[in-house]
Deep mutational scan, measured.
Amino acid sequence: MGFKLLSKLLVYLTASIMAIASPLAFSVDSSGEYPTVSEIPVGEVRLYQIADGVWSHIATQSFDGAVYPSNGLIVRDGDELLLIDTAWGAKNTAALLAEIEKQIGLPVTRAVSTHFHDDRVGGVDVLRAAGVATYASPSTRRLAEVEGNEIPTHSLEGLSSSGDAVRFGPVELFYPGAAHSTDNLIVYVPSASVLYGGCAIYELSRTSAGNVADADLAEWPTSIERIQQHYPEAQFVIPGHGLPGGLDLLKHTTNVVKAHTNRSVVE
């Protein structure tokens, strides 16, 4: 069995187990497998329904001669939608809004960016022009300005110390501490036991640490421990890039980060 097929099978099995364990909360999309990078042309966006009122959005972007996937989250909030992270750029984010209108038909009224990198804030200006209120932590807003990236308009308070959590509509926002970046936030959907790890969490097929220019490698494993301790009931975990899975993604990420750190020390 090929690795790609095995990865998709694991996603399907995880979703099936969740649907059985929580039949009222989960209505997993039966329309197909989780979209992969090879299936999404740059400039297009796919939506994948995880649970009743919960979707991931998947886009792709060219970077350094390669094409990478990027995940975000959409959560229903009454007759409105909360968006977590842009679709990595203005063109993708405009396509995301169009796809949401086509498939869901509810307005996106608020959006949260989970850290300051372009795959999370690139497209904020498109959201703002569409009347979406954009939010991020003060740290993310400051770092985005320093980096020359787009800056969300509103500040999220109460997320300055490791372990801080605040309720934001249908989700809980959690600051686990520094990891992929010093400002990275985690998003949890309690009604569906869905954990969105953003770039602080890796997919299972990833074996290298990737972009760690703004990471705190020493603190990252401790931050992941905080996530595990705060959300032990999480059933569906979405990484910032690639295929979702279960809580095993947290341990896998820790292993990859520690291996990278150990290699760096040896070198």
Score class of each variant (00 low, 15 high):
G78V: 09
T14P: 15
L6H: 08
V189H: 05
S155M: 12
D85E: 04
G2L: 13
C199L: 02
Q103I: 13
V194Q: 00
D118A: 08
T36E: 15
L156E: 02
V11R: 10
T182C: 05
Y175H: 08
V132D: 02
S223A: 10
I84E: 00
A144L: 08
P138M: 08
Q229Y: 11
V126L: 09
V11C: 15
H180P: 03
T261N: 13
Q103A: 12
V54D: 04
V132A: 06
K102Q: 11
V121S: 01
K258H: 11
H252E: 00
Q229A: 14
S113E: 03
L247C: 06
D118Y: 06
D125C: 02
P41W: 07
T253K: 03
Q235W: 08
L247D: 08
Q61I: 08
S160H: 12
E172H: 05
F63N: 11
T153A: 12
W88E: 00
A209V: 10
Y202R: 06
Y68A: 15
V256Y: 02
L24K: 13
F236E: 07
Y231C: 06
V187F: 03
G122F: 04
A144Y: 04
A21I: 13
R263D: 15
A192P: 06
P170S: 09
F174C: 03
E219L: 07
L9Y: 14
N92Y: 04
F174W: 01
D85Y: 02
P41C: 06
A94M: 15
H230S: 12
V187R: 01
N92R: 05
R46S: 09
G197N: 04
V112H: 05
Q103M: 14
L47E: 01
L9M: 10
L6R: 09
V45F: 03
V266I: 09
A98C: 09
L195Y: 04
I201A: 03
P232V: 07
S181D: 00
G198K: 02
G43M: 04
I186Q: 02
L73C: 02
S139R: 11
K91A: 15
K8Q: 09
A200W: 02
L249W: 02
I151G: 03
S193I: 06
P221S: 10
L82T: 08
V37H: 15
A192K: 10
R167F: 10
P152W: 00
V28Y: 13
A144F: 03
P190N: 07
V256N: 03
R141V: 08
Y34F: 15
S139V: 13
L81V: 10
L159Q: 00
V132E: 03
G2A: 09
T254E: 13
S205Y: 09
K91H: 11
L243G: 09
K258F: 10
I186E: 00
Y231K: 01
R120I: 01
T60M: 14
Y196F: 14
I201H: 05
L73M: 15
V112N: 02
A130H: 14
E147T: 14
T109I: 11
G197L: 01
A144K: 03
A66G: 12
P190L: 08
L156W: 01
Q229C: 03
E44C: 07
E99A: 15
T93R: 01
P170K: 06
Y175E: 00
Q235P: 05
L13M: 14
L5C: 15
Q103F: 15
D118K: 06
Q49D: 11
G78E: 10
T114C: 03
A19F: 15
S30T: 14
A87R: 01
R167V: 11
G197D: 05
V45A: 08
T14Y: 14
Y188K: 00
V45T: 06
L159A: 01
H241M: 00
V171E: 04
L47K: 03
T207K: 14
H115D: 01
A111T: 07
E80V: 09
D248T: 09
V187N: 03
S27H: 11
V187K: 01
K251D: 14
G240K: 04
S70L: 02
N92H: 03
A213E: 13
T36Y: 12
V237E: 00
D29F: 09
C199K: 01
S208N: 15
S161Q: 14
E203L: 02
G72W: 02
I58Y: 06
I100N: 04
A129T: 11
S56W: 15
P176A: 05
T207F: 09
M1W: 04
L173V: 11
L5R: 13
A259M: 11
S56E: 14
E233K: 14
I17E: 09
A21T: 14
P170E: 05
V42M: 08
V75N: 02
V45L: 05
V11D: 11
F116Q: 03
V237R: 01
Y135Q: 01
V166E: 07
I58D: 02
R206Y: 07
L249Y: 04
G105P: 07
D248H: 08
V237L: 06
H252K: 02
L159T: 03
V266T: 14
V256A: 05
T182K: 13
L249R: 01
D79A: 10
A179W: 03
G240D: 05
P23R: 12
F3R: 08
T60Q: 12
V54Y: 01
L143P: 04
I227D: 01
D77R: 03
L82A: 04
P107Q: 12
A66C: 07
L185K: 01
R226T: 05
S30N: 14
G72S: 03
N71Y: 04
K8R: 10
S70Q: 03
V265E: 14
V42K: 10
Y231W: 04
L217K: 03
Q49W: 10
D85P: 00
S208H: 11
V266H: 15
A15M: 10
S181C: 03
Y175K: 00
A15H: 10
E145M: 14
A51N: 10
D164A: 13
A21E: 15
I186R: 01
E44P: 07
V112T: 03
H57S: 04
L5S: 15
W55S: 01
R263T: 14
V171F: 02
P221I: 11
I84V: 11
G53P: 06
I227V: 11
S7T: 09
V126H: 07
S137Y: 02
T93H: 05
I17V: 11
L81G: 02
P244D: 02
H57C: 01
Q229S: 14
L5T: 15
H260R: 11
S62R: 10
